[in-house]
């Protein structure tokens, strides 16, 4: 038994997977730039991906902002720097936590739903049926989801940013003894346009990752209920990992000085 054989096999399988994903991505993008686009389907997906994600994204952003304010206060206290809370909250939320938390929540909600829906369509031959009706499945299923996710995510993150800062504000004014007016003034004075805009770039990227991984795993699901279940899990896990990896890369690119 050669111990290198399974390692090599796993490595080649990994490479094949990367290759398939790349080809799928290129195909999807080529269909985005070529008309027609099914705008009605885009609108439906905007509702499902964007609008219905608002409660979960808003709630998580609120609690994250609150916990952040509490931690910065406790940490800053060690150096007598408690007053820095509003500045760090707005910086942390807009640059990092807003996009990442929203990205991960939407990944769990939307990526899974997309993979389950498209995966079921695959195993029940509905995707083959689309082809026989002269409708390209990538154009009909993948493009609307990608477009809708890339549009929705920056909007969701902009809302998450506001709610996150508000969460910090509530905790700071209600339990930490900050004055509301000063808190808001410090927030607005400190915040720069690039803090927010960098977060929105990240959001659009995360939206693309979420829809792509949902669609890719759904399209490639095999073998009934179990296959669809595996596709759903893979979609959530892979999109979450890719979001965190892309977040690091984007942070280092956007703030390279």
């Amino acid at each position: 038994m050669n111990i290198f054989a399974p390692i090599g096999r796993a490595f080649f399988l990994f490479l094949a997977q990367i290759g398939r994903l790349t080809m799928f991505t290129v195909q999807a993008i080529s269909h985005i730039v070529r008309p027609p686009i099914y705008w009605y389907a885009v609108f439906q997906q905007l509702m499902r991906i964007g609008y219905f994600s608002l409660p979960v994204v808003g709630l998580t952003a609120f609690f994250t902002g609150g916990a952040l304010a509490l931690q910065i206060y406790l940490g800053g206290n060690r150096y007598g720097a408690e007053a820095i809370v509003p500045q760090i909250v707005v910086l942390g939320i807009t640059r990092e936590l807003g996009p990442v938390i929203a990205g991960l929540m939407v990944a769990g909600r939307v990526s899974a739903a997309i993979a389950a829906e498209i995966g079921t369509m695959r195993v029940t031959e509905q995707i083959d049926a689309l082809t026989t009706l002269a409708t390209n499945p990538i154009k009909y299923l993948v493009v609307p989801r990608l477009v809708a996710a890339v549009i929705s995510m920056p909007i969701l993150v902009a809302i998450a940013d506001s709610i996150g800062v508000f969460g910090g504000y509530v905790v700071a004014t209600q339990t930490l003894g900050f004055s509301g007016g000063i808190y808001l003034k410090n927030t607005v004075d400190f915040m720069k346009t690039e803090d927010v805009v960098s977060g929105l770039y990240k959001a659009a990227t995360f939206g693309f990752i979420i829809a792509l991984m949902g669609c890719y795993n759904g399209f490639n699901s095999r073998g009934g209920a179990q296959g669809v279940g595996a596709a759903t899990t893979n979609a959530v896990v892979s999109s979450s990992i890719l979001i965190l990896a892309a977040n690091y890369v984007l942070t280092s690119l956007l703030f390279a000085k």
């Binding site: 369509m121 029940t124 031959e125 509905q126 083959d128 049926a129 082809t131 026989t132 009706l133 002269a134």
Partner: peptide, 16 residues
Amino acid sequence: VLKKFGMLFQSAALFD
């Protein structure tokens, strides 16, 4: 080419 074809699938494959 596909516009010449119609197909009935084993499981009907209707869009649910």
